[in-house]
């Protein structure tokens, strides 16, 4: 390497760049993190499809079988239709709840250390990652939605409702992805993280209105289900995609928003600790 290579280029005269702060910069940082995650996804698009297969199998096998049972009132639709929003939400949660594994992997690699030593607000790191998980979830859900529609499950195609549903999918994914990063920051190792992840996903799924209405649950389970953010995502999606009527959307969106804000606040505080 000839040693005057750098000296002859004009960059050598440039002063150190000092990054300014502010809300605009914060948003740019968040979008840059999202961009990075999506660029990675672009190199590996098949993941979205493979992740969409299992939920569709749930719908086809479980949904069809239980459509004959008629154990409770599904509001005039088949059980398969009734459970579709539940399965969509479940696939969002299952993917997002293991998102924190990438945090641990990035810590082991050294990528996270590098980001944490850069002039990026912590909240931008957390929200950027979570939003990227949201976009990922949205792609995955869209595939499942289309496959469900192809197999003949009658779903509403109202543009405004679909748009609103997309927003709620992102909110739900942001919450569960942030929760996952919080868990990663606390347990710190892959093994423990996988253990906790597997421990909580099934209870979160069954203690929600994904597969059956809250009204048929025993009292104690009803309490759990009503503090479970998953229930509110399912409720909104069921309104938007199945009945076409959003009866309690304010509560659904409000609770999901509050859950996201709380999780982001805790996540921002704990995230840097994953490297200590």
């Amino acid at each position: 390497m000839e040693s005057d290579r750098f000296a002859t280029s004009a960059v050598a005269l440039v002063k150190p760049a000092i990054k300014t702060a502010g809300i605009k910069i914060l948003i740019i940082d968040i979008l840059t993190i999202v961009e990075m995650e999506l660029r990675k996804l672009r190199h590996e698009p098949t993941v979205l499809f493979t992740r969409a297969v299992q939920p569709v199998l749930w719908l086809l096998i479980f949904g069809q079988a239980f459509s004959r049972v008629r154990a409770f009132d599904t509001g005039g639709v088949t059980y398969q239709t009734y459970m579709t929003p539940g399965i969509l939400s479940q696939s969002v949660m299952f993917t997002a709840i293991f998102f924190g594994l990438s945090t641990i992997w990035e810590r082991d690699m050294g990528i996270l250390q590098k980001f944490l030593a850069m002039p990026i607000p912590r909240v931008a790191l957390v929200l950027g990652k979570a939003l990227a998980a949201g976009v990922r979830a949205l792609c995955q859900v869209t595939i499942i939605f289309l496959l469900a529609a192809i197999t003949g499950i009658p779903l509403h195609w109202h543009p405004a409702l679909l748009l609103a549903a997309a927003g709620v999918v992102i909110l739900g994914a942001v919450f569960f992805a942030t929760l996952s990063m919080i868990i990663a920051a606390i347990v710190k190792t892959r093994e423990r993280f996988m253990g906790i992840g597997q421990l909580i996903t099934m209870p979160l799924f069954f203690a929600s209105n994904a597969l059956y209405p809250i009204s048929i649950m025993p009292d104690w389970l009803r309490v759990v289900a009503s503090v479970n953010p998953l229930s509110y995502m399912v409720d909104f999606l069921r309104g938007a995609l199945v009945s076409g009527q959003l009866t309690s959307w304010q509560a659904d969106v409000g609770i999901l928003l509050v859950a996201c804000i709380l999780a982001t606040a805790v996540g921002t505080y704990l995230y840097p600790r994953v490297v200590t």
Binding site: I25, D29, K40
Partner: peptide, 22 residues
Amino acid sequence: ALSVDGALTGYENMMIFAKLLG
């Protein structure tokens, strides 16, 4: 430890960093 993202190209790694550095 190795700290670049193998899934991105060299240029993308530089671009993302440059943006984050303002």
